[in-house]
């Protein structure tokens, strides 16, 4: 009594449906196939841009150094840790002839890098020849869990040519008193 319903439309309409279906299948396939490719292309483009920017940053850095800090008057201060478990460094402030020139708050990663032998370029500037005083103020947590704030000074004579000072932090048992030692590199 009830026959199964069949699609019996005229042939051109059916062909149109078929063509539409094929078009949709091809389109969806193209979209599916093109999405990861587009993402890969974007990744590739970003990666290429980052490489170009890194290369430019290096060259601009060299130019900046060249313009800003002529070797004859240049002074650079580096910071290192002499003992890696001596203290947990929070901040360092640096003064040259009582003028604040640099300050830094340390993140966990930066402090870990110092513990692994990292060297921080804390200050680069220009100074005239003659006597100067470098003063460093540090805040830290000593190995015996004490909060400490210490100041240390170093008198140096700026001579012609590039001049570098290494500031090294340490705190020895039993009192874990932080100490800053200065070393001049000619």
């Amino acid at each position: 009594m009830f026959a199964a319903e069949q699609v019996t439309g005229p042939a051109p309409i059916r062909r149109r449906y078929e063509l539409t279906t094929i078009f949709l299948v091809v389109l969806s396939y193209t979209l599916l196939a093109s999405t990861p490719a587009a993402a890969d292309e974007l990744d590739e483009d970003i990666s290429q841009l980052r490489a170009d920017v890194a290369s430019l940053a290096g060259e601009v850095f060299a130019l900046e150094e060249d313009i800003l800090h002529p070797a004859d008057s240049q002074v650079t201060v580096f910071l290192t840790l002499a003992r890696k478990d001596a203290l947990t460094l929070h901040s360092v402030e640096l003064y040259v002839d009582d003028t604040p020139v640099a300050s830094h708050l340390y993140t966990g990663r930066e402090f870990a890098a110092l513990q692994q032998g990292g060297v921080q370029q804390l200050y680069t500037g220009n100074l005239p020849h003659g006597d100067h005083v470098l003063r460093a103020v540090l805040t830290a947590r000593a190995a015996n869990n004490r909060y400490v704030r210490r100041e240390s000074s170093h008198q140096f004579r700026k001579r012609p040519g590039e001049f570098r000072i290494q500031m090294s932090l340490e705190a020895r048992a039993p009192d874990y008193e932080p100490q800053i030692s200065f070393r001049e590199w000619k």
Partner: peptide, 8 residues
């Protein structure tokens, strides 16, 4: 050392 710190 400088490389290590800059990376961190």
């Amino acid at each position: 050392g400088l490389t290590r710190f800059a990376l961190a």
